[in-house]
Design a binder for these strands. Structure first.
Lengths: 232, 232
DNA sequence: TGTACATCAGTGAACGCGCGTTCACTGATGTAC
DNA sequence: TGTACATCAGTGAACGCGCGTTCACTGATGTAC
């Protein structure tokens, strides 16, 4: 009964997907601030008011796109790590593979990237539903560091005293298994990784960095060292 | 003649400044995508068409704001470094002072920050006039590194082979005086610094980092090490 | 199985809104002789 | 110094545009008896 769906239910699922696909296309063309329900409807050959059967407002559509984007980059990160792991890669190589995969996703979906990691969309405030999906990609890094820590360990210098309680809290939020130094280093490194990607994507590397791939590999490898991962 | 200006010229300068100030206020309230000439004019008690005597289009006004923002953060960085230098601070402390100053500026002017370091404004493409001011803050870091290099030197591991020509080019672009390893490390670190600031400003640290000041100090200090600056 | 009713997707018109930009104009300020 | 003319800031109306959202409606699909 719940598997064999009626025509209506199947149609609803399909149309919902079509709306999100078209919205993603519009996003890619114009950016989130200019994403308009009317344009999406027009492109789908619907009347704008019909969209309200699927999304109660423009903001809800944006939220759906945001959640999908987080899930999309998270899935890419997980797949890259799974592949590296299957190939027997050591933690540092898994780290690099995931960084590269995330950058690849960002270059392939620049506006979706901007939607989740760029400046907030004016007038829109993300609801709590986005918190879970947002951490999915980060979980991949946590897994890599946990494996490395369980193996030969991660050597990091001690934290400044005033950061120790905060770092312990972070480590606890990451489901235990990581020492506080690693947790703090991961959060910092995580932010820094997106600094590299954002600068490339948002044009700050124009006339500064030419060999983007080589430069990113160099920088991401340095980040792996920063987080305590030993060289192979 | 060029110093003693006529009433008309002085008025023009004042009104231009008032328009930019009001535009900055609107920016702070709504973000760049929603910045509207009409709203600015309304707030100034002018009619919208009057703004065209001062800026030929909305984009030109945006460009002026972008250049001012780059100059503003550049001036803040320079002032922080000058102060640290006057107090006899070693390079690593100057580095930290400038990082902290840039973050402080960003927290105080979040929408101006987003305008220059966030996702590009849809439909707007920055003209070349913005390139010069954009590098002003970075020049401060170059100065610090040059001083450190001239002093006891900067120890950095060698670059991967495929990045050496690129790094040499970067070093040349920075007016010489810095070895290629340092140039490459600075560019990476520069991007990473803005990753930290953007994540804090754009809400990615919500529910993750609580002690923002301490965390930033920790991360910025790590960046100083990354770029080869010795501890005091 | 057939029929009466409920559910729901999609329509089309309308609401009130704000936007960037153009244009002919008025009237004050500056300039040349 | 006084006058005729040029320059320029600011006005007000208008252009054409697109937006999000509401609402009463039609007609097709699903459901209960």
């Amino acid at each position: 009964m719940s598997t064999v769906r009626g025509a209506r239910e199947r149609a609803r699922i399909e149309v919902t997907a079509a709306i999100k696909d078209e919205a993603r296309r519009a996003l890619a063309a114009e950016g989130a601030a200019k994403l308009s329900l009317r344009a999406v409807a027009r492109e789908l050959g619907m009347v704008s008011s019909a969209l309200y059967r699927y999304f109660p407002s423009r903001d809800e559509l944006l939220t759906a796109l945001i959640i999908d984007a987080y899930d999309s980059v998270g899935a890419v990160a997980e797949a890259a790590d799974a592949e590296a792991l299957a190939a027997g890669a050591p933690p540092r190589a898994r780290w690099l593979a995931v960084c590269t995969a995330i950058r690849g996703w960002a270059l392939a979906h620049p506006h979706e990237y901007a939607l989740i990691y760029g400046s907030p969309v004016p007038g829109y405030s993300a609801p709590l539903d986005t918190v879970g999906p947002a951490s999915r990609a980060a979980e991949t890094f946590i897994g890599i560091l946990r494996a490395a820590h369980a193996g030969r360990g991660l050597a990091l210098p001690p934290l400044p005293g005033n950061l120790r309680p905060e770092a312990r809290r972070m480590a606890a939020d990451f489901d235990e298994g990581l020492p506080p130094e690693v947790a703090a280093a991961l959060v910092a490194t995580w932010a820094q990784l997106f600094g590299l990607i954002s600068f490339e994507l948002f044009g700050q590397f124009e006339r500064v960095v030419e060999e983007r791939d080589a430069f990113f590999a160099y920088a991401a490898d340095r980040l792996g060292r920063e987080v305590g991962l030993p060289l192979v």
